[in-house]
Every structure is written in C-alpha cells, then in structure tokens.
C-alpha cells in the first residue's frame, strides 16, 4: 500500500495528458523513420536486386546475393574471423580490464581521478590516431614492441603483429578497454566497502573476498561491457589499398555502457 503514496507524484505527472508523450517524441520519431528506417529498408531491398558489371543494379527480386553469402566459403570464413576476433578481444579486455578497475577503485581520491582520466582519455581520442600509434609500435619485424620484448628476453623471434589477427585483437582491446574499466568501475562504486570488511571479519582471505563477494556483485557490469565489446567489429589497422576488401569489417564504437537508466 505504501507504494501508492510514493508514486503519487509520478502518477500526477503521468496524468497531465495522454497525448503529451507522443507529441514530444514525434519529431525524433519522424526523423528516425525518415532517415534511418527508410534507408535501412532500402538496403535490405537492395540485397534482393541483381547487379552486373555493365547493366548496374536491376530492380528485380532474386535471392542470388543471399545464396552467394550462404554458399561461398569466403563469406563463411569472413564471418567466422569477425566472430573469433570479437570473442578474443572481449576476453582480453575482461581479463585485464576488470582487475584494473578493482585496483583503480582502491586508490585514494586524487590518484584515482588522475588514472581514470588517463585510462578514459583514449576513448575520446581519434581512432585514426590511436590505430596509427599501434601501427608505429608494431611496425614490421623491428617495431618497438618486438624490440622491447626481445631485449627483455620474453621472445626470441619477432612476433608478426601487422596485418595479423594478433595485432587486431591487441589494438581492438585497446579501443574497448575504457568501456570495460568504466563498466566494472561503475559496478564497484555501488558496492558497500563495509561488505568487504564484513567478509574479512568473518575470516575470508583476499582471494575468497574477490571470488565470493566482489565478483558476484560486479558481474552485471562485466556482462554489460562484454556485450558491448562483442558488438564491436575489428577496426582495420591501416592497411593501404587492400583495406577496401578486408574493410567490410566495420569499426563499432560501443555505447556508454555503465548506466542503464532504467
């Protein structure tokens, strides 16, 4: 019953007119129908049309294009590669991003906001610039990363990064990382620090606390970030000329994931 009193203002707002929400959303709705849904529908329609080198697009209804995608192993390979890269990227992002968010959350105020700025900053820096940076770091067999790893004795022969899936996954993980850190961090923010202390007072060690207390509470945040990661498609490392063929892979900047408003 108490809900009634609490929702009274909400109900009051609702009552002010049943047509109001439609009037308020109508402009945006018309915009979306006019310049999003219609173009998309046109594209779907296009997929049933015929095309030839000399005759151009012919407005007929055929399933040739669909049949080609379904049967040509080139497309199957492409879809599978896209999917594989998305999964690997997501895993890498989660494995590194979640612990970093945890560490970040335990820092004191000033350091926390400084490093948050450092980690979130790349999010807002042009993807072209960032990808260029990776190309410079990977750059052939004597790129900076390979030089560093070999001088540290981690690897003996240089790893080919450029134009490989390894390089793509690393660069993509870099693009998605801020989203993961942000989502997990937002989830951690909602945790009551006293809960960790309570677990400790009951005799739980640090590993147990993370595994039994922290993880279950932040999983929703991880999942949200993960879903947005898998939505991303590889950003092409700059791949002069040939990129048109491989470039049907689109880059997807994913949504701000951490706050669902409802």
């Amino acid at each position: 019953m108490s809900a009634v009193a609490d929702t009274a203002p909400q109900a009051a707002a609702k009552e002010r007119g049943a047509r109001a929400p439609w009037a308020m959303t109508a402009p945006a709705l018309m915009l979306f129908v006019g310049v999003l849904l219609i173009p998309l529908a046109m594209t779907v329609l296009l997929s049933f049309h015929d095309w030839g080198q000399y005759k151009g697009i012919e407005p007929v209804f055929i399933l040739k294009n669909w049949h080609e995608i379904a049967t040509d192993p080139y497309y199957a390979e492409m879809f599978w590669r896209t999917f594989r890269i998305a999964i690997l990227t997501t895993l890498l992002t989660a494995v590194l991003g979640a612990p970093e968010a945890y560490i970040l959350n335990r820092m004191s105020g000033r350091w926390k906001s400084f490093f948050l700025l450092v980690i979130l900053g790349p999010l807002l820096i042009s993807v072209v610039a960032r990808t260029l940076g990776w190309a410079l770091l990977f750059g052939g067999n004597n790129g900076l990363v390979n030089k560093l790893l070999m001088s540290l004795g981690v690897i003996r022969a240089p790893i080919p990064f450029m134009f490989t899936e390894t390089g793509m996954v690393v660069a993509l993980a870099h693009v998605m990382m801020p989203f993961m850190v942000l989502s997990v961090w937002a989830a951690l923010q909602r945790l009551d620090p006293q809960i960790e202390n309570a677990a400790m007072s009951l005799g739980a060690g640090p590993v147990t606390i993370v595994r039994r207390i922290v993880m279950p509470q932040i999983m929703p945040g991880c999942c949200r970030a993960r879903s947005s990661c898998s939505r991303c498609r590889p950003a092409p490392l700059p791949r002069p000329r040939s990129s048109a063929a491989a470039g049907s892979r689109s880059r997807r900047r994913s949504p701000m994931t951490s706050s669902s408003t409802r």
């Binding site: 490093f115 450092v118 900053g121 790349p122 960032r130 260029l132 940076g133 770091l137 900076l144 870099h174």
Partner: peptide, 13 residues
C-alpha cells in the same frame, strides 16, 4: 604496465 600500454600508442604518435 596497464597504464603504460594504454598510453603507449598515443605517446608514440
């Protein structure tokens, strides 16, 4: 290490 990797591409550019 994490922060270094995050900034490295931007720094190198």
């Amino acid at each position: 290490i994490f922060v270094t990797v995050m900034v490295a591409p931007i720094l190198v550019v």
